[in-house]
Amino acid sequence: MMQATLTTDMPENDAPVSRVTLQQAIEWQLCMHSGEATEQDRQGLQRWLDAHPSHARVWQQLKEIDAAFQPASGKSVRQALLKRSSGRKTRIAGTALALLLTVLGLCAVNRYQPVDQLLADYRTGTGERRTIVLPDQTIVRMNTRSAIDLAFDTHRRAIVLHEGEIEVETSHDDPNETRPFIVLTPDTSLRALGTRFIVRDVDRGEGTRLTVTYSAVVARPATCAAEPQAHCDGERIVREGETVVVRDGKVSEPEQAPADADAWKDGMLVVENRPLGEVAAELARHRLGYLSVDPRVAQLRITGTLPLDDTDQALLALTAAAPVEIVSATHWWARIQPRPPQQAAQAARN
């Protein structure tokens, strides 16, 4: 059962923005970043932003979308289009349409399968999970948007996790197998001690999380050699039921791992008293398109179970449990925002 507690003030006006307003915002954005904007244009933009609360809201939404796609392309979609366009407002409508189509195209490609994962030995797209059996009969379960390479040689059995999340269940079928089994990430080397464990690339630059669900794993920061015979002062043995994060050359103190850390294998997201912003970020990993949360409700506390294979249903469950609504301009863009007060009051009475 989904539950939520409110810790933020509710707004007075949160009606969904119209398509006309969205189109106007796109035209203003293209105008202001064309390199030809005048002081009169800037004053006109400010008057438009001040004219209605929805104008500022959709202006912020466009900036979020632009920023979301910038890391994949190295520059914003808007910049790429404007570099080839020197027209003024007579051509803005056509450029706006091109912007929308380009955003949708990038969303379809990069949101389903990140470009930098295409050459990996094994990979999963957005919303996809798969199970693979390695040459030594080790089982690897891959979560959404994950990519790994195999690096088996005469000295070790290694998996390189480039992105995403995997569960490893090492095999013991061959009593003559003496090569260590290691998972490598930019932050760490993780050596299995006859075990089952989960490794997740927390976020780019934010470290690697290890959760041990059976037996134990030796975690070393990347500053140490991966070979077990090499001494490493920074290594730590992480035992069953513990979780750590390896970041900046250090292995954190172990904490108790959530009992449902591997629920994603069964297509479920189990959350207990977590902020709505974190819950939405997790759902976004499994959802095609762009999903964001209004800061005014990002700190709502959520407890419950959500389906990962149907994120539309998961979002619907959130609206039933919390005073929020889902606003979507297209199938590729959705935002969780506060429910209008009158609707929230009606829902409370029901």
Rank of each mutant, 00 (worst) to 15 (best):
V202Q: 08
C224I: 09
V245M: 11
E255P: 02
G207H: 08
P254Y: 03
P258Q: 12
T208M: 05
T223P: 01
P221F: 10
I237Q: 06
C224F: 06
V238Y: 00
I237C: 11
V244A: 06
G241R: 08
E242M: 10
V244L: 07
V218R: 12
D201C: 12
E242W: 00
A216E: 06
G249N: 07
G234L: 12
R204V: 15
T243F: 00
G205D: 13
L210A: 10
R247G: 04
K250N: 04
S215D: 10
I237H: 05
T243W: 01
G207I: 04
Y214N: 11
P258M: 12
V217D: 13
T208L: 03
V244I: 08
R220C: 11
V251W: 00
T223F: 09
V245A: 07
K250L: 06
D260Q: 15
A261M: 03
G249H: 06
P221A: 08
D233S: 13
D203G: 15
K250T: 10
I237R: 13
E235A: 06
D248H: 13
P254S: 14
V199S: 06
C224Y: 03
A219G: 08
A226Q: 09
V238K: 02
R247C: 14
P228S: 11
E255F: 02
A230P: 00
G241P: 04
G241T: 11
I237P: 00
D203M: 09
R209Q: 15
E235I: 05
V212E: 00
P258I: 07
V212R: 00
R220T: 13
A230S: 09
R200K: 14
S252L: 04
V251R: 03
A230M: 09
E240F: 01
V217T: 14
D233W: 10
Y214V: 01
E235D: 09
L210D: 04
K250V: 10
E253G: 05
R196T: 09
Q229H: 15
D262Y: 00
E240C: 04
A216S: 13
T243L: 06
R239H: 14
A219I: 08
A259E: 13
E206G: 02
D260M: 12
S215I: 00
Y214T: 09
T195F: 02
E235V: 04
T213L: 05
E255N: 06
V218E: 15
Q229V: 12
Y214G: 03
R236W: 01
Y214W: 04
R236E: 08
D260H: 15
D248M: 10
D203Y: 08
D248V: 05
E235M: 12
P228I: 09
A259M: 12
T243P: 01
E255D: 05
G207V: 08
G241N: 04
A230E: 07
A216T: 04
E240N: 10
G205A: 15
F197H: 02
P221G: 07
V246E: 07
R236S: 11
G207A: 10
A257R: 01
V218S: 12
T213Q: 06
R200M: 13
I198G: 03
S215K: 01
G205E: 12
E206P: 00
D201R: 15
P258E: 02
T213G: 03
L210N: 03
V202A: 14
T223G: 14
D262E: 11
R239C: 07
E255V: 11
G249M: 06
A257C: 04
V212T: 01
E240Q: 13
R204K: 14
P258L: 08
P254E: 11
G205R: 10
H231V: 07
E253H: 02
P228D: 12
A261N: 03
T208F: 06
